[in-house]
Design a protein around this nucleic acid. Structure first.
Length: 264
DNA sequence: ATGCATGTTACATG
DNA sequence: ACATGTAACATGCA
């Protein structure tokens, strides 16, 4: 599920744990999520450590602990963060469970496509030191956007928008929303856009990211009712603008939804 | 039962 | 080497 704003939402769900000491850490080390980190060692490092800070960038989350420890989480397809009141509430796929005085911080992930990594250092882990601008940031302006587009790519815009080095945080539904709002078909290539289309695409990237953050990040509210978002999940739904049947097809391996007459 | 899922990447192909 | 496409990962749901 998690794209830009959902990731920010889940990150914030652990906020009450900020400043808390980890009394006990239970990590399910047999799952795929621990691809690059040794879970036994991480559990030992977490215990007695205090969470002091959290941040997100695109789809990544980073928690800082006070004794040379960083915990990095990518939620994959089905990862989520929450706090459970007691261990009686623990569920089957709760793979990380951190006991604190305010409750159990939980990472849950049924499909285990998420990635958990830890870093033992005083300074920021390398990935976080030189980040590309997020679409919501001020430095992500039209000039920057044009520069991204100039590195010509002939792959469909749908796939282009999912490139996390260019559009950190943009996922499948956001890409469809951005293209629908800019009235451009997902099959088009960056190369084929004229100046006006480039500007419209830029504006939609900014707008969809900003409004998603405003609506979803604080409490997981739905995006505006007028958005494609509410119509793109199953076949048979109609375009909110034209009333025509929406198209659904795989592009670049991802299910894509668009409105044939609305988008050119 | 079958097909599909909001993410990423290793591998295949041209 | 480069650019793009596909299969695979593990589980749950319609």
């Amino acid at each position: 599920m998690p794209e830009l704003a959902e990731v920010a939402y889940y990150c914030s769900r652990w906020n009450p744990g900020c400043g808390e000491r980890i009394l006990e850490a239970r990590l399910n080390g047999r799952i795929r999520c621990f691809r690059n980190t040794e879970p036994t060692r991480l559990a030992a490092l977490l215990e007695g450590n205090r969470m002091i800070d959290s941040r997100t960038h695109g789809k990544r989350i980073l928690f800082r602990f006070d004794k040379r420890l960083w915990l990095s989480i990518h939620l994959g397809m089905t990862g989520s963060l929450s706090i459970r009141a007691s261990k009686a509430n623990l569920k089957k796929h709760d793979h990380i469970v951190l006991n604190t005085s305010i409750g159990w911080l939980v990472y849950n992930d049924p499909r285990q496509f998420g990635v958990i990594e830890s870093f033992e250092a005083d300074q920021l882990p390398e990935f976080w030191q030189n980040l590309p601008p997020e679409p919501i940031s001020k430095t992500f302006d039209l000039r920057y956007f044009r520069r991204l587009a100039r590195r010509g790519s002939r792959k469909p815009l749908k796939s282009y928008l999912l490139d996390q080095t260019r559009f950190p945080g943009v996922g499948n539904w956001m890409a469809d929303e951005i293209l629908w709002q800019s009235r451009i078909r997902p099959q088009r290539a960056v190369d084929s856009l004229d100046d006006e289309e480039t500007r419209k695409l830029f504006q939609s990237v900014k707008r969809v990211s900003r409004i998603a953050m405003e609506r979803i990040a604080p409490d997981y509210s739905d995006p505006p009712k007028t958005w494609l978002f509410h119509r793109r999940w199953r076949t048979g739904e109609l375009c909110p603008k034209t009333g025509d049947l929406l198209k659904r097809e795989k592009i670049g391996g991802k299910t894509t939804c668009w409105s044939e007459y609305w988008q050119r």
